[in-house]
């Protein structure tokens, strides 16, 4: 069970962060960054099996594999943008956090353009 390790890890790092936050806020930021990354590293291998199952479903159903690639890309962008924005917000830089989030949203929009184009093509073929 991964969850026991993650919870214990979160409690330990919160305790250390509580001690550091008053004295050395900049070190506390580095520490919270590291602990967030380590929790991600604990969870990420579990996600691999989920993604392989989904790609198997996509392969069996005969859908366009391009669209599944778009979904994966959007997921990765949202995970990374959320992580970066959370770190910026932890440092107290609200402006930087909201810029990072906005960049993530824009990049998601850009990478979902092929899907919109595909829908348009489908409508065109249905009309003619």
């Amino acid at each position: 069970m991964e969850i026991f390790g993650i919870v214990a890890f979160g409690i330990v790092s919160s305790l250390i962060l509580l001690l550091l936050r008053k004295e050395r806020p900049e070190m506390a930021l580095g520490l919270s960054l590291v602990s967030g990354l380590l929790v991600f590293f604990l969870v990420l291998p579990e996600l691999t099996s989920v993604i392989s199952v989904f790609s198997g479903i996509v392969r069996d159903s005969g859908l366009e594999p391009l669209y599944f690639g778009v979904i994966l890309k959007v997921l990765a962008i949202s995970y990374i943008a959320d992580f970066g924005a959370a770190i910026c917000r932890d440092a107290g830089e609200e402006l930087m956090a909201s810029r990072v989030e906005m960049a993530g949203k824009l990049l998601i929009l850009i990478s979902s353009i092929p899907v919109i184009q595909g829908v348009m093509e489908l409508i065109k073929t249905l009309l003619t």
């Binding site: 960054l33 590293f41 993604i51």
Partner: peptide, 24 residues
């Protein structure tokens, strides 16, 4: 001290990006 922590952290961040790239 901040630079020392940054050198410790930056490798982990690169690892993280690499593993997200591999997972997705």
């Amino acid at each position: 001290g901040v630079l020392l922590v940054l050198t410790l952290v930056i490798r982990l961040v690169a690892d993280f990006f690499q593993s997200v790239r591999a997972t997705f």
